[in-house]
Amino acid sequence: MSIFQEYEKIRREVGEEMWARFHQFLDHRPDYLLSDVLYKRDVAADFEAWLPTAPAYKIITIRRAEGPKGMNRGRYEAFTWKEANQILREMAATVFGSYYDKVDFTVQFANETHKGRYDLTIKDNFHADLYGHIESECLFYMGQLRPKHMKMTEYTNFILGIDSAPYESFYKSVLLPTKEAEEERVDSISDVAIVAYVLGRKTIPLGTSGLGELYEQTSSGECLLTERGHGVYERNKAEIDKLAQHVHVPALQVWEQLQNS
């Protein structure tokens, strides 16, 4: 029996909720592996001690409905909002220009299922936020979040015709209990984008203010990262490498869109 088959067998035995709890715990303790939780007594004891403090569980499935030809449109599974956001970030690296690709998602909560669509753009290289997407939809129908394109009178009239009770109930009793700690970002989004641009293009990203701080220009015109620029790279290596290798999605374009949003 392969390790994959063994894990699938264990998953069936413990049930979907406990399997999701294992993954939540690993997000809480990234120094552990799934095998540690399953086979090491001291780690299992840590898991049991953590379990009463765990947020409400959920199982998230994501499937890309649109995208480049040959793109894998398979089903991806996540057990935390952080994992789901990472899946969306990886997908966003292949969104072309200012377009968006439709992504279908399903969230299986403890007592109900929520389905929806996420419009994926190049901004999601940095800003992917599935929880925030669902939360914004709830707050919109609860009359607490007016979109920029709607005037106040238009929004007020729209809300008057909506029964907000189901959205409020779902938000407070189902969605909110699953909220996780906010992801901390040491470096600004623009710094990450500028470093990725310099590494990918070896040229000056026009319209930015990183010269001398994040990168320097040699006499031959080539751009090289400064010590601070290297620090930004080391802290955000996976994200920057992904951006730098997609020449049709220049990081500067992401940065410009973020500045104008």
Rank of each mutant, 00 (worst) to 15 (best):
S209W: 11
F126E: 11
G132H: 07
M142E: 14
G143F: 00
E180D: 06
V186W: 05
S209Y: 13
T153G: 08
D124Q: 03
E182H: 05
K172C: 00
I122H: 00
Y118D: 12
R185H: 13
R185V: 10
I189L: 10
D124Y: 05
T106Y: 01
T218F: 03
I194V: 15
H127S: 15
D124P: 01
P205H: 11
L211S: 08
L199Y: 01
E182A: 15
G221Y: 04
H133N: 14
E168F: 03
V103I: 14
M150K: 06
E222A: 11
L139W: 06
G221V: 02
L139Q: 14
E154R: 03
S173T: 15
G221I: 04
E213W: 08
D163W: 06
K102C: 03
C138G: 10
L139E: 15
L214P: 06
K172T: 02
G132A: 10
P177I: 14
A193M: 08
Y155D: 12
S188I: 12
L130V: 12
K148R: 13
V107L: 05
T113H: 04
K148H: 12
Q217F: 01
P147L: 10
E182F: 06
Y131G: 05
Y118L: 02
F158Q: 09
D191G: 02
D187K: 03
L176D: 11
P177N: 09
S169L: 12
E183H: 03
R146N: 05
G132S: 03
V174Q: 04
K202W: 02
K151M: 09
D101A: 12
Y215T: 04
P166T: 06
P177C: 10
K148P: 05
S164G: 11
T156D: 11
D163N: 15
T156R: 12
S98V: 13
M152V: 14
S220Y: 12
G116R: 06
A193S: 09
P147I: 08
Q217G: 00
I159P: 01
G161K: 01
T153I: 14
D124A: 09
N157M: 05
Y141S: 02
A196M: 05
K172Q: 13
I134S: 01
G97N: 06
E222N: 04
L206D: 12
T121G: 02
Y197A: 12
I189R: 03
S220G: 14
S164A: 11
M152T: 14
L120M: 10
D124H: 15
N157L: 07
G132K: 00
G210K: 03
E154I: 01
F126P: 00
T113G: 02
E184L: 14
T156S: 08
M152Q: 15
F140T: 03
Y197M: 04
